[in-house]
């Protein structure tokens, strides 16, 4: 078909009168040539991921499950924090864990040793979890009803910030053995999170880490960021973290009674409103 005037072959013409289809009329060449056209797409690059994330979020809401996406650089103590968290919460509410790593199932085994169900996702060469991987994980291990699902993302302060998994909140873990300027070196991660956990606070007497500066840098990138300082190893500050989780669990349970929440889109701060 001619993309300029809509004419088909010799027997199909949309013009009022017969007319010669000369070369300057931009018709495709019937001898096998081709013609060009601009196609408007206007779609977000992450629209497919966001579609899976939105479906995950609906599944979580239907089960009244509070879901956290934990992100940090490698070695910040995420797995230790999770082990200590599930140890304190199991028996009080249903908990399960999804572990994301490029290789090995060592983290999932550490969680399972506490008696809590855990599923390992190996991303291979991938540097982050995406919503499609979580959707498949939920087929193997459904989200706990009226409970808590903890997702430990791949250790990486850059890429995971960009991929919505359908979680209730993004949590970034920063440890005192890293520099206090991490929030301004990797601002996208701290801008995407709603809570920052400052871990390994038991080591502060032995380090030059400046807690006030770390908090100021984090709030410079995200003024609404909530912050909890703790040590997963000694248990110091853990109660504030558990209280924060219990609040979220209560909200998820109340939310499911009131009707599902709708995700309004990405931005500096994740926003939700009642459907």
């Amino acid at each position: 078909m001619c993309m300029t005037c809509g004419c088909g072959d010799e027997n199909f013409r949309v013009h009022g009168l017969p007319h010669p289809h000369t070369e300057d009329h931009h018709h495709g060449d019937p001898a096998g040539g081709s013609f060009s056209r601009i196609v408007e797409i206007e779609q977000d690059l992450l629209s497919k991921n966001d579609g899976f994330a939105s479906a995950n979020r609906k599944r979580f809401a239907a089960k009244a499950c509070f879901v956290l996406n934990l992100m940090s650089s490698p070695g910040s103590g995420k797995t230790t924090l999770l082990v200590e968290t599930v140890r304190r919460l199991q028996g009080h509410l249903p908990v399960s864990v999804i572990e994301g790593d490029q290789q090995t199932s060592q983290d999932a085994e550490r969680i399972r040793a506490t008696g809590v169900p855990a599923l390992q996702i190996n991303t291979g060469k991938g540097c982050h979890l995406d919503a499609h991987m979580i959707a498949h994980a939920l087929e193997k291990m459904p989200a706990p009803e009226n409970g808590l699902l903890l997702i430990e993302n791949v250790g990486n302060l850059v890429c995971p910030a960009e991929f919505d998994l359908g979680e209730s909140s993004k949590v970034v873990v920063l440890s005192t053995t890293e520099g206090e300027d991490k929030p301004i070196k990797y601002p996208d991660m701290f801008a995407a999170a709603s809570l920052m956990v400052l871990n390994k606070c038991d080591l502060l007497p032995y380090l030059d880490f400046n807690v006030e500066a770390a908090i100021a840098y984090a709030r410079q990138v995200n003024p609404a960021l909530q912050i909890i300082s703790l040590s997963a190893r000694t248990g110091e500050g853990m109660q504030a973290w558990l209280d924060w989780i219990n609040n979220g669990v209560a909200e998820a349970r109340a939310g499911s009674n009131r009707g599902a929440y709708t995700y309004l889109g990405r931005g500096a701060k994740t926003e939700y409103c009642k459907a």
């Binding site: 993309m3 495709g28 081709s34 013609f35 060009s36 056209r37 601009i38 196609v39 408007e40 797409i41 206007e42 779609q43 977000d44 690059l45 992450l46 801008a191 990405r266 931005g267 500096a268």
Partner: peptide, 16 residues
């Protein structure tokens, strides 16, 4: 932040 974080496919120039 209210603008400048978008990542969109705007258009394609294609051949038939």
């Amino acid at each position: 932040v209210t603008g400048g974080s978008e990542m969109r496919v705007k258009s394609l120039e294609v051949e038939y």
